[in-house]
């Protein structure tokens, strides 16, 4: 992502697959440039996430509340 942003804004830039924060490199003063891997319209943190995102089926979010 080439758009320079204020460094505090970048801390909420996270991998679209795993959620890991994606670091940004400082380019000047308070501005920085997001690192990471742009695939189509999503930003991923790594090749591993890209590979897994193609095969992994996410669990359903809503569940019965169970407890041992």
């Amino acid at each position: 992502m080439k758009m320079p942003i204020i460094s505090d804004e970048q801390v909420n830039t996270k991998c679209a697959f795993c959620g890991q924060p994606i670091p940004a490199k400082r380019i000047e003063g308070l501005r920085s440039e997001i690192l990471g891997m742009q695939v189509a319209d999503v930003l991923l943190c790594s090749e591993a996430c890209y590979a897994l995102s193609k095969t992994y089926t996410r669990p359903s979010v809503e569940r019965e509340t169970v407890k041992t």
Binding site: S7, V11, N12, Q20, P21, P23, L35
Partner: peptide, 30 residues
């Protein structure tokens, strides 16, 4: 490792010199 990696990437290896020490306590940077 998340804090170390985040700090090195954010500052950039080319901006680090022998004898530098970095501090990072930002929860949102690893």
């Amino acid at each position: 490792a998340f804090a170390v990696g985040s700090a090195i990437k954010e500052i950039g290896k080319e901006n680090l010199r022998e004898g530098d020490v970095l501090l990072n306590n930002d929860p949102f940077r690893g």
